[in-house]
């Protein structure tokens, strides 16, 4: 199974270990992984701030780049019948799958391409559950964790049980449900800097609920939410760990923290 790895820009630049772990797990589960080097940013920050024209150009670039393993975008070698695009971010995957077709609807070349492309794009945990089969994975890690549903994973992609089913495959890991798990953490992209007081207050609510679980690690499929929550937790003086599900999975098969 061939996977074109989609690495959102902020993961590439700020959280490379999330991408490394994703790559490791996919290979561990028998995938052939290609990293298309011309990919940059899916354009979501521009899109969500209302700059649709800028987002559109980035969307075109990203689609072209992700279906080409060559370094110059010249040759499209993605097989739309058999290959997949997989990314460790529900939010950016939702952009690619759910919002690109609308954004590119009026473009003669990209309207059809983006719809076809969207069908092949999967969020990491979703890919494992729906394509690979969750039973193929198992690991071992002593930890108490809670899982944070990102709004895009939950409501745009409909991901709820999948990541939990993965975590349940890790021996020694205890999963404690977060109260009000479906409430937004307050990140919201540019919302977090346009209305920082509201955003931080929403993070505080989430962190307060996290206190009740006794979890050592908050796990999520979206590092953007975690970056925000961790940033707020550190400011409040909390040392709690925040980790992407791919990182936890990688640790559970290697037996040590990367």
């Amino acid at each position: 199974m061939r996977v074109y790895l989609f690495v959102p820009c902020y993961i590439d630049q700020l959280f490379p270990n999330v991408a490394v772990s994703t790559l490791k797990i996919l290979e561990h589960l028998g995938c052939e992984v290609i990293f298309p080097e011309n990919q940059t940013c899916c354009g979501q920050p521009a899109y969500n701030t209302g700059y649709f024209e800028e987002a559109k150009l980035m969307a075109m670039h990203e689609v072209k780049s992700l279906i080409s393993s060559a370094s110059d975008n010249a040759r499209i070698d993605f097989d739309f019948k058999n290959d997949y695009v997989v990314g460790p971010s529900g939010s950016c995957v939702a952009m690619l799958r759910n919002f690109y077709p609308g954004l590119l609807a009026n473009d003669p070349m990209f309207s059809k391409l983006s719809a076809e492309f969207g069908k092949r794009v999967f969020e990491f945990s979703e890919f494992i559950n729906r394509i690979i089969g969750v039973e193929r994975f198992s690991g071992k890690l002593e930890a108490t964790v809670s899982f944070h549903d990102s709004c895009h994973s939950l409501r745009e992609l409909g991901i709820k049980e999948g990541p939990r089913n993965i975590l349940k495959r890790i021996e020694g890991l205890k999963l404690v449900e977060l109260p009000y798990a479906e409430v937004c953490c307050g990140f919201g992209g540019t919302f977090s800097v346009k209305f920082p007081e509201i955003s931080a207050s929403m993070a505080d609510e989430k962190l307060k609920n996290l206190e009740q679980t006794g979890a050592e690690i908050l796990v999520s499929g979206d590092t953007s939410c975690l970056m925000h929550l961790q940033g707020r937790a550190r400011r409040n003086g909390s040392p709690r760990r925040f980790a992407h599900i791919a990182e936890i999975m990688a640790e559970s098969i290697i037996g040590e923290r990367a």
């Binding site: 630049q13 959280f15 490379p16 270990n17 920082p196 007081e197 970056m227 925000h228 961790q230 940033g231």
Partner: peptide
């Protein structure tokens, strides 16, 4: 103003 920045890594994923 409200949050710490993450630890920036020396190398990107790519």
């Amino acid at each position: 103003a409200y949050r710490e920045l993450p630890q920036f890594p020396s190398r990107s994923f790519r």
